[in-house]
Design a protein around this nucleic acid. Sequence first.
DNA 1: GCCGGATCGTTGGCGTGCAAACGGATTTTG
DNA 2: CAAAATCCGTTTGCACGCCAACGATCCGGC
Lengths: 154, 154
Amino acid sequence: MKDAKTDRPAAPEPGGSPAQDYVLDRQVGFLLRRANQRHLAIFAAAIPGLTPTQFAALARLCELGPQSQNALGRATAMDAATIKGVVDRLRARGLVAAARDPGDRRRIVLAATEAGRAAFEAARAAAHRVSADTLAPLAPGERQAFLDMLARLG
Amino acid sequence: MKDAKTDRPAAPEPGGSPAQDYVLDRQVGFLLRRANQRHLAIFAAAIPGLTPTQFAALARLCELGPQSQNALGRATAMDAATIKGVVDRLRARGLVAAARDPGDRRRIVLAATEAGRAAFEAARAAAHRVSADTLAPLAPGERQAFLDMLARLG
DNA sequence: GCCGGATCGTTGGCGTGCAAACGGATTTTG
DNA sequence: CAAAATCCGTTTGCACGCCAACGATCCGGC
C-alpha cells in the first residue's frame, strides 16, 4: 500500500485523467537538448570548419601533449568508436599526427601538428567568446553558479 | 624542463585573459555535452525501448492532440529531417498513426494510437524519475533555479 | 487568373554518440 | 609459465541532428 502523504503534483492519479502531469518544457533532458542546440549553433557560427568535439579533442591534445587514442577519448568524454571518427577527420586535415607506440604495439600515439596547434591558437579566443555568448542570457552573477551545478550533473 | 606556468605564445592579450587558460572542463559546451550524456544513460536505463526524443514526440502528441509532422517537430525542437526519422520509427511500432490532411494535401496529420497513448502513460512515472535522478546531484533548493537558468539558455 | 514566395514533406550527406562484437597485444594471476 | 582478465583499436548497426536541395502544394498580391 502507498503512503497517502505523497505529493500531488507528480503523483499518479487513480481514477482521473492526469494529462497535464508531464510537461515536456520542464524536463531537464529536454532543456539540456535545447541548450545544447543553441550552443552548437553559436559555436558553428563563430568557428566554422571545426566542430565542438573536434575542437575539444584538439584542445586536449595541445593541453596534455601526446596521448593514445583511447586516452584522448577518455579525456574528452568520447567512447572509443566516437573518438576514432573525430581523430580520423582531424588526421585527414593534417591537424593531428599519429604514430605507433614502440612500447605498446596496440597503441596509436596522437599529437597535434604545427597546423593543428596553430588552428587551436587561432580559434581559442573565439572559443572563449562562444562560451560567453552561450551564457549571455544569464545574469553575470549567475554564471559561475550555473557552471558549478552543471559540472555536478556530468 | 618546461616553462608551463608563464607560457604566453603568439597571443597578444593586453590586460585581458592570459589566453593560455582554455580549460575544457570549464566550458559550457563541454559540460552540457557531459550532462546530456549522463541524462541519456539514466533515461535509457529507466525506459528501455524508447529514446528521449521518441518519448518527447509521443508526449507532445498526447499533450497537444493531432499535429502535422513539421508542427510536431517545432513543438519538440527537431528540424524537419530529424522529426521524420523519429516519426517513422514510432509509426513502424504502431505508436503513432498518420493520415493525409484533406484540407491541405501537403500535410500529414499524426496522432498517438491507443498503443502509443498506453506506452506514454506506462512510461510517464519513470520519466519523472529520470528527471529527478538527473538532478539528484544538486541540493533540493538548487534544482528549480538550475532549471530556470537552463531554460533561459534554450 | 496567375505568379512569386512561403510551407510541407522528402532525400542525401556529414558528423556525433552508443552498444556489441571482434582480433590482437599486454597484464594479472593461479 | 600459461590461462584468464584487461586493454587497445576497429567495425557494424542504429539513432539523432543539421544543412542543402528538391518537387509538390498553398497563399498573397497584382
